[in-house]
Design a protein around this nucleic acid. Structure first.
Lengths: 122, 122
DNA sequence: CGGTATCCGCAGTGATACTG
DNA sequence: CAGTATCACTGCGGATACCG
């Protein structure tokens, strides 16, 4: 289910661009990666810690996106079989390799401070 | 219609990342920008020239994505009222400002040569 | 705490045919 | 050549309720 979403690429030269885009696409992937990179470079974040950083994501979607990122090898999910269940998410090396991409994305967004795309044109 | 797609952002710190992502999302935006950047840094590309570079895009979608990119101020559309209609697409300054992003995307995709995400892990 | 399961609407995308 | 119009499907993503 987590693996259905990759639309078949056409793969002209621009293929790599689209391929990467599709991996970090999904309404929350970018933010998740961002938080994992920003707040815990080599640390882990618990499920609810992630939720706190993304107030508008539903449990379903967070789980979903997390699972997809895991399936794509970007993060590792560790379940601690304790009494109060604890699950931690940590970036893999592959996940951390996305840092330049996320940073570029963030840099651009910051630079062009887009609050209201419709009101811009600047 | 081209303006409905921007999903409302939640805008935690990671906002900028998501915002940028949403602008270049859409199945073909990335590739279009890539080609416009790669093949014509300050040149224009005609509609069919673009199509030739993206064999799998339908006319409808190319037009659609092009229009959204235009609406977002990333490219400029010039119509030459000639006998055989000619329409050229050229990146705006804003569009060109996305170069680092596209390059990061491309670099990552190339580096991790993703043909089969499931078969990698390298 | 950290999920799953289910139902559902709608945007995004495709296919095809027609047009200035 | 460069679109536009129409029809229809698919699956993303939201809401809500329940579970180990």
């Amino acid at each position: 289910m987590a693996r259905t979403r990759h639309r078949s690429l056409d793969c002209s030269p621009g293929c790599a661009v689209e391929a990467t885009l599709q991996l970090i696409d999904g309404k929350w992937k970018g933010v998740i990666l961002y938080h994992l990179l920003a707040e815990a470079p080599e640390d882990s974040l618990r499920f609810n810690a992630l939720r706190r950083r993304m107030p508008n994501v539903t449990q379903r979607m967070l789980t979903n996106q997390l699972r997809e990122l895991e399936a794509d090898g970007f993060l590792h999910r560790t379940v601690y079989a304790e009494v109060p269940p604890r699950v931690e998410y940590r970036l893999t090396a592959l996940g951390r390799s996305l840092e330049p991409v996320i940073r570029a994305l963030k840099a651009w967004g910051d630079a062009h401070a887009m609050s209201a795309p419709e009101a811009d044109a600047a």
